[in-house]
Amino acid sequence: MKNLLKTGASALALSLMATVATAEGKLSIYHWFEYIPQELLDKFAAEYDVEVTLDTYDSNEALLAALKAGKLGQYDVAVPGDYMVEIMGKEGMLDTFTDDEMPLKGNILPQWMDVGFDPGRKSSIPYQWGSTSFSVNRDVYSGDIQTTDIIFNPPEELKGKINVLDTAGETLTLASIHLGIPQCTTDREQLKALNDLVQNAKQYWASFGSDVAKDVLVSGDAAAGMIWNGFGMKAREEGANIEYAYPAQGYIVWMDNVVLLKDAPNRENALKFMNFLLEPENAAAVTNYARYTAGVKGVEPFLEEAVKSAPELNPPAGGNPQFVQACDEEVQKVYDTIWTNLKK
C-alpha cells in the first residue's frame, strides 16, 4: 500500500509539475471539429511560445449551450457561424478589440469587412466561408440530384439511407428552402407545413449526425447526407464516389468567424492568434486542410490546385444562396418544438 501511495503521489506530482512548467503562455481555443490542421496550431505554438489547447464542438447551438453552461471564461477564442456571432453578441459573450490590437485587419476581404452580424469587425475576424447542402453516392443513385427532394422527398434508392445534420439551424433552414417559405416566418400555416415536412421526411432518414457526416458517406453507412461543401470534398477525396449538390431551390451559405470571447483568460494570446490567422499563408493552410474558402486577401499563391478547381467550392452562377437567420424568441420557440418533435 505504501508503495502504491508513493507511486500515486509521484504520478500526481509529476503531472502537476508538467502543468506548472508550461503554464507560461496559454491559449484555449473552442473550435469546430476537424477544421484546423494540427500543424498550424503547432506552428503558432512554436512561433509565439504558447501552449495551445483545442476543444471541439459540432454545431453552433452546441457552442452556445456549452458557453451558457459555464464554459464562458475558460476559452479565449471560438469559431461561431454568422448568425451565431449575432446571437453571442446580443448575449454579451463577446469582447471587442481596437484596430491597433489587430494589425493585419486590413487583410480582410472587403466583402467580409462590414458584415451585418458584426458591423466593422469589432469582435470577430473572418475565418472560412462555405455552403451547406448535401452529397449523394453516385453508385447508389444516378439521377438528378440538384434538388432538395433528395433529402425531403427522396427517390426509392436513397430512402432510409440518408444522414441529416444534427443541428436545427441548418436542417430546418434547408427544409424552409425546400418549401420556399421565408426563414423565421411567423405564419402559422407555413410553420405547420414545415413541421409536417420534416415529420414526414424522418422516415427516410437513417441517422442524425454532424461530426459523423463525412464518415457515414465514406464508410457507406449512408448513401446521401447533408454536409458542408468542404467536408463533402474531403469525403470524396477519401474515396467515396459522391457528388455535392447545389440544389435549384437554394442552399445555405455561411461564414465562420474567429471571435474574441468575453472574460478570455489569455486575451493577449487570443489577439495574437487571430492576427496570425489573418496572414494569407495561415488562412490558406486552413483552406487546404478543411477545403472551404478563406475570407482573407492574398491566399491564392498558397492554395493547393485541388482546392482551386474543386466542384464543391465553385457554386454555379445564379443559384439561391441563403444565410441562416437568427430568429426572435417567439419563432425560435416554435423551431425548438419542431426540432424536439423531430428528434424524439
Binding site: A62, K68, D166, T167, G169, T340, K343
Partner: peptide, 9 residues
C-alpha cells in the same frame, strides 16, 4: 441532448 446539444433545456 438537453445539456450538450441544441435543445438547451
Amino acid at each position: 441532448e438537453q445539456f450538450k446539444g441544441a435543445a438547451g433545456n
